[in-house]
């Protein structure tokens, strides 16, 4: 485009116009330079965040080496730090959240695209999308004041009595009726990401060409069969991408988890016991880290979280892109 405008300016001979043209060309160059540097700023912001965290965490990485990832120590007195407990807590809570949120979100998306009467689809979809915007601290507060007592009073004892007796699996569900813990955090996270995942799924389901679905219906397929054999294969990579997006936000969520996870640096098999997550550890302890190695360990945790979410989100993006490209080819 810039080339075409300079070609235009060469063609003109009138001198004031020419002057205007050179001025315009210079302004265009400046404009282009400004927007390009803003674009580069986006790159730099991410790179800067990653590098500053790697730099801040270098002391922890060099002191503890690979052991930082495998140690359960979190001992501010003796300056020994390991990331295993927060990593474990982050992964377990995110996994619980995904186990609940993915099927439910799939159900919601299915309901909103294939099952619900037309008049209901728009309002329900809009409501769910609005709810996706509620700040995470509200989920955390609700979790602590409303949901934790319910978990402690009813759910945990029930789990103890029923699932806790199963050999092997039971270890996951035995523990005191605290109400707070990894299971509670996982459930609150699930509630948080459901609107998110379900709206991505709904959107990609809507992109399935009508004629594909209609031909299947014409052959006598049931709705389930259409979804299973037509819609899902067509949208598979985007659905996985949406799930990854949800996973990414579940891994990095701070406030909702901090309220209900219990902030305990212990590795326990039971999901009913308190644990810790990377984000919650940083939120709780960063301002009070009183030694360099302590602060460095926390920043190193931040770096790990950053790297993990980077790969999860990159995976999500790649999957979504694949779907978009496949669609473009058709």
């Amino acid at each position: 485009m810039a080339a075409s405008s300079s070609a235009l300016s060469n063609a003109t001979i009138d001198s004031p116009a020419q002057r205007r043209n050179t001025r315009d060309a210079r302004a265009d160059g400046l404009f282009r330079w400004i927007v390009a540097s803003a674009g580069l700023f986006v790159l730099l912001a991410l790179l800067g965040a990653a590098l500053s965290m790697l730099w801040g965490g270098r002391e922890a990485f060099s002191t503890f080496g690979f052991g930082f990832l495998t140690s359960t120590d979190w001992d501010a007195v003796n300056h020994k730090f390991g990331a295993l407990v927060p990593i474990y807590g982050t992964l377990v809570t995110a996994l619980i959240a995904m186990l609940i949120a993915v099927p439910v979100s799939f159900g919601i998306a299915l309901f909103l695209t294939e099952v619900a009467p037309n008049w209901l689809r728009g309002p329900v979809a809009a409501a769910i999308e609005l709810l996706a915007g509620i700040p995470s601290i509200i989920y955390g507060m609700w979790g602590l004041f409303v949901f934790v007592p319910v978990m402690g009073e009813y759910v945990t004892p029930w789990l103890n009595d029923h699932l806790g007796k199963i050999p092997g699996l039971g270890a996951l569900f035995t523990g005191p009726p605290l109400g707070i813990g990894m299971l509670t955090a996982g459930i609150v996270l699930a509630i948080m990401v459901i609107p998110f995942i379900s709206s991505v799924m709904r959107e990609v389901f809507l992109t399935v060409p009508m004629r594909l679905k209609e031909s299947a219906y014409a052959l006598g397929s049931t709705t389930t069969e259409v979804v299973w054999d037509i819609v899902l294969p067509y949208t598979r990579s985007a659905v996985i991408g949406g799930v990854f997006l949800g996973l990414g936000s579940a891994l990095g969520e701070t406030m909702a988890v901090t309220f209900v996870l219990g902030n305990a640096h212990q590795l326990t098999a039971s999901l009913l016991m308190p644990g810790n997550s990377i984000a919650a550890t940083i939120a709780n302890e960063f301002t009070e880290a009183d030694s360099d190695i302590y602060r460095s360990s926390l920043i190193a945790l931040g770096f790990l979280l950053f790297v993990v979410t980077f790969f999860v989100l990159a995976g999500a993006k790649w999957m979504l892109r694949r779907m978009a490209r496949a669609e473009g080819e058709k």
Partner: peptide, 26 residues
């Protein structure tokens, strides 16, 4: 120390947090 490696338990943030948890948990 100002924080130690607790053998057991739940962690609350601040005196407020401990008081809030003790009130919540039977």
């Amino acid at each position: 120390g100002t924080s130690v490696q607790w053998p057991v338990g739940v962690g609350g943030k601040g005196n407020e947090g401990v008081a809030a948890y003790v009130k919540q948990i039977k």
